[in-house]
Every structure is written in C-alpha cells, then in structure tokens.
Design a protein around this nucleic acid. Structure first.
Lengths: 336, 336
DNA sequence: TTGAAAGCGCTAACAT
DNA sequence: ATGTTAGCGCTTTCAA
C-alpha cells in the first residue's frame, strides 16, 4: 500500500541510495537516471516518510507552538503569521492550547518535545520559570512569545506594552484632546505598562494628568462593553469632562462610544475614542473604531523568520529580545 | 545529551526491552524493576522519542487539520474543539491553512500525509474532488469537514445549512413576527440552503412570503455592517415594513440594528433582529445580538471523538455523514 | 556516477 | 520476568 524508496529502487534496478539522492536533489546523479526515478516516483505517487527521515537526520521540519488559548484572536493571529511563513520552507506547525492552565501547558510542552519539534514556541502561562529551567538544555530551542519569564534565559519576542498606551495617548493629543481619559486594564505588569505609556505621553506633551480621568477596572467587569458604557457615563457626570478616551480593549471602546452618542456627544468631534486589539468586527460599525493593533500577525512572522534562520544557519542563537511596536490604526472614532 | 532507552538500560543493567515494556506499561515486569526503571527515567528526565516509536508502530498519535483560513472564527473554533478532545488521548494537532487556495491546500495535504498523520481532517477549498480521488487509498483516513465534495466518498461532518435559516425564521415567527425579512448571503449552495430554510419556516407557519422582504447580497457588499445598515433603510422605505430580520452574518445584523435605532424603531419591540455566527463581540453591545451559532466547537469535538474511535477500535469506518444542528442563541435583539 | 553497510530509537515476536 | 533478534524507512559514510 505505501510506496517506499525500496520499491522504486527495485522497480528500476537501482539501489535505495540512488533514489534517496534523487529525492534530496543531490547532484551526483546522471540526468538520465534522475529523470527515470522522478518519473517513477510520480507514477507511484511516492510520498517520502518524514518520520523515518527525521529519525535518521534529527530534523522533523516541524515547529511546536503552545498558546494559552485558541479563543484569543491575538494568539490565533500569531499562529497565522507563523504558518504563513514557515510553509515556504516546508515546515509544519504543531499547535497546542494550554487552556490557560500551567499544568496542561507543561504536559503539552513535554509532548511536543517528545515529538522532536525542531523548535518550540511558547506563550507561557507558567507563574514561575521553574519548569523551564528544570528542562535544561534541549536540542530544540525554546522561544518565549508575548509572555516573558524572569530568570529564564530564552529568546523572547513580544510587543512593547508601554508603547500601546503611549501611541494611543499621543494620537489623541495630536488629534486635539487636552483631557484624554484612560480606562485601565487589570493590575498585571503588562497592563500597568500600557498605563505608564499613557502617563508618559501626557507628560511629554505637557498635558495635565488628572486622576479623575483614569478609571480602574474592577473584578466585576465581566462585561467589557458594559464597563465602557458605565465608565463613560460616570466620566460625563464628573466635574472634568474628557475629550478623548483610550480603552484597554475594543469592546470597552464600543461601550464608550454608545454611551457618548446616547448623550448626544459627537464622536470624534466632542470626544475621540481609541480601543485596543483591532478586532475585525469593530473596523466597520456606526463609528468605525480607531484601535491599537497588537501586531500579532507580525509577531508570528518575525518569530518564524528568526526560528528559520536559527535552524538553517544552525548556530545563530537569537540572543537579544525582539520587541515589536504596536500600530495605531486610525479610523473615524478619533479622526481629527 | 538526549537520553535514550538504551541509556537507562545500561545504567540499570537491563535490556532495552525491559525499559520499553515499563515505558508502555506492560504487565510482565516485576514491581521492583518497574520502580527502578521509572525512578531512573525521572532522574534522567527521559522523554521517549515519538518519531522513533512511530516508525516502528506506524502510529504517530498526531492528527492533521487543513482549514481554509486561520482568520475565520468558525474554523478556529473547530480547531479548539479538536485540540480539547484529542489531548486527553495523547494526540497532537498538526494544523495547516490553505489560505483559501486549492493549490496550497493540495500541497499541505501531501505534506501532512508525508508526516504520517493518523488521520487527516480537511475543510476543503477544492473545486472538484479530483485531487482527493487521485490520492487513492491512504493509510490515514481522510475526513471532510464543513465542505463536502461530490463523488468523493469520505466521512463528512458538517452543519445543517437549511436549519440555520429555518430555526432563525421559526424563532422570529414565534416571537411574534408576521413579516420577517431575510438578508441573503452569496449565491453558494450552502447559503442558498439557509435561505430555503427561511422559506420553509414561513410556509410551515402559514406566513405569507413577500419577495420584497428578501434582500440580495451584491458583489459590492465588502462592508457587511454597511450592507445591513443600507438594507434596513431600504426596507423601511418600502411599502411593506418588516417586523423582524434574519441576517446572513452578525455584522450585517449590527448594521440593521443601528439603522433601526436611528429611525427610532425599538429593537426588538418594533423589529427583532437575528444574526448568524455568534461572534463573541456581539454578545454584549447596545442591544445584545441574537444569533445562530454554527456549532464550530461541537464540530471539532464530535469529529475528534469519531476519529479517536476509528483509530482505537481500528476498523470502525464512520460511513454516514454526521450533520450537526445550529443553535439559536436568543439575546435581547429578538427577545419577545 | 552508483551502491553496500550500518544505524537513528524504538518495538513486535519470539526465546529463555 | 527478562532478553534476543530483527527491522520500521530513511540517510550517513565510505567504497567501488
């Protein structure tokens, strides 16, 4: 049923070796035999057994990816960028979801290593670097994506969190806002960095920082849209009315816009709104939403390039972190 | 660097075979040696080489998935359901995107087969079954998802398209609509089936079918939101005003809702709206959107179960098609 | 330009 | 309960 090198060889009265050489494009084969072999391969619909060649060569031409969740568009975007880029070189992607569970993540990583992936990319949900350091030196390089772990020295690729808040605030300021509000995210290191970017922009442009214009996220904010809606209403009821709002997510921003429009404020004339994530569904809409794109696709593409280079040149240890910049996507909700 | 069975064996003065047996949980091993072996495995952080065992046994414990695109949430949902379910049995998912290109799809399928996946799942973009029939009998069963190919006899798992239009229309009718409109999708077989479901529901409930309430999609509809918005305005300007609308997608539905609210119609009191796709972002919103869920997650889960059964029982050819029902998710936009 | 031998890490089938 | 032999399909190395 399955055609092997051996079958082609005996068919053609050649040795396995000759067939193998043709398969891999070695040059020490006469054009004539090469043609015959290729011909026969096509006839028999020969398909090389990559598992077998892997065993011999040590390369599987597969790359492992472990992400926290397949629901989050940011991570599927990363996967998309990866798949796009590695395909050209004949690599495949082995994908796992950790379901946000550190224990599952560990098991999936072990499994992928057992599968001899040539490189392992992880957007880790580990709380400590312990597991990774315990892994010791692997044949497969491990590369961290998006979430960095302290004191585990692995190449890292991520997005500059601080810039997210920064470019959004700068954009609002340049669009004429003198009182830009900020709807904060959760109290994580990454989210706090975004906030600090907002602060930095205000400072840089000599805009007075007003604590009243910063709205904290609470544990009860399960519903992002609602949160934006409520926050906007509260801001409008306050003494200081904002003329712009940066939101931690796009859905929050949609809530803000709806609340504003309902109060007969014009967006962006009376209040400009910027979201984050650049969700496809918010690009169209009543007021198309300006948003900070997290460059997930680019993270995937760049990671792929880096990995491919490391695997081919075989030695280029990508030592320093690779930090990508988020992109301000301006649409009507903040167009000056 | 890499620890092999052989290393453990020589360490413990046992044969490779004994170690292998412990590894696979064979019972003809004394508790004592078993313990010693397990112990040593842990110490050395032994990780079995699945590629090698595959070569010997013929099973890779990996399943291939080829989807048209990683951007479409429906397909990533399917992947999510698959990954969830196969993980429990130690299987991994090899994922490829065809980028909506039949030629790329063919190459990815060849590649996955070369990788000896135990089963291959394809949501195909082929225009004809030719490629698949030419593949002939594979060791790996090929299973078609979502998109069926005529005259290629492979197990198929999909969603009942007709029911999509049907349950939405029935829901609208039961919610009190006597003039439900339908915003059609493209002229594809699947989309036409949805429409026929709408027609069937009207007929069944003795609701007069009014051609004026059916809006065709045009080539120019790049912007779904806009399309819904414009269509709603046109419907309102017509002689016959609908009291409900079923939309081909959620984004179209959002446009409809915005147009309606702008005309001071109440949703759902004056006009009920139902979308399709059940996008996460439309669950919250000004008016939380009722939507037909395409059961992507379930498609993934059921496919996984079917495949796992076929691979374990080794023989159970899942012959008949497995058709899943879409689910009507009722939210405020159509709540009676 | 072609091919023979050996072996990658593991396991099936059989000894002992 | 433990071990021996052979070989999965391919490629590295070296010889012819």
């Amino acid at each position: 049923m399955t055609v092997r090198l051996k079958d082609i060889a005996s068919d053609l009265n050649l040795s396995k070796m000759t067939i193998s050489k043709v398969l891999r494009g070695q040059t020490d084969i006469s054009a004539a035999t090469k043609a015959r072999v290729l011909q026969r391969m096509k006839e028999l619909n020969y398909r090389p057994n990559i598992a077998a060649s892997s065993l011999r060569t040590g390369n599987t031409f597969s790359i492992g990816l472990v992400i926290p969740s397949l629901e989050d568009p940011f991570f599927t975007e990363i996967a998309r960028g990866l798949v796009q880029t590695i395909r050209a070189k004949g690599y495949s992607l082995l994908i796992s979801s950790a379901e946000e569970d550190p224990e599952i993540e560990r098991r999936e990583i072990e499994l992928q290593l057992s599968r001899q992936v040539d490189a392992l990319l992880v957007a880790s949900v580990q709380e400590s670097p312990e597991f990774f350091t315990a892994l010791g030196a692997q044949k497969a390089p491990i590369i961290l994506i998006d979430r960095k772990l302290p004191s585990f020295a692995a190449p890292f690729i991520g997005v500059r969190d601080q810039e997210i808040g920064y470019i959004a605030a700068v954009h609002l300021i340049k669009a004429g806002c003198s009182k830009p509000a900020y709807l904060r995210g959760p109290r994580t290191a990454a989210a706090d960095l975004r906030y600090s970017g907002y602060r930095a922009a205000l400072h840089e442009f000599n805009i007075l920082f007003r604590p009243a214009l910063v709205v904290e996220a609470t544990e009860m904010d399960r519903n992002e849209y609602r949160r934006g809606y409520d926050a906007m209403n509260r801001l409008q009821a306050g003494r200081i009315r904002p003329d712009g709002v940066m939101c931690y997510t796009d859905l929050i921003a949609l809530g803000v816009i709806d609340a504003a429009l309902e109060k007969n404020l014009r967006v962006p004339e009376d209040i400009a709104v910027v979201g984050c994530g650049n969700l496809p569904s918010t690009r169209e809409m009543r007021v198309p939403l300006s948003s900070v794109d997290l460059s997930g696709l680019e993270v995937g593409q760049r990671t792929a390039k880096l990995v491919l280079r490391a695997l081919s040149a075989d030695g280029v240890a990508p030592s320093r972190d690779l930090m990508l910049s988020p992109k301000m996507i301006v649409r009507r909700s903040s167009q000056s």
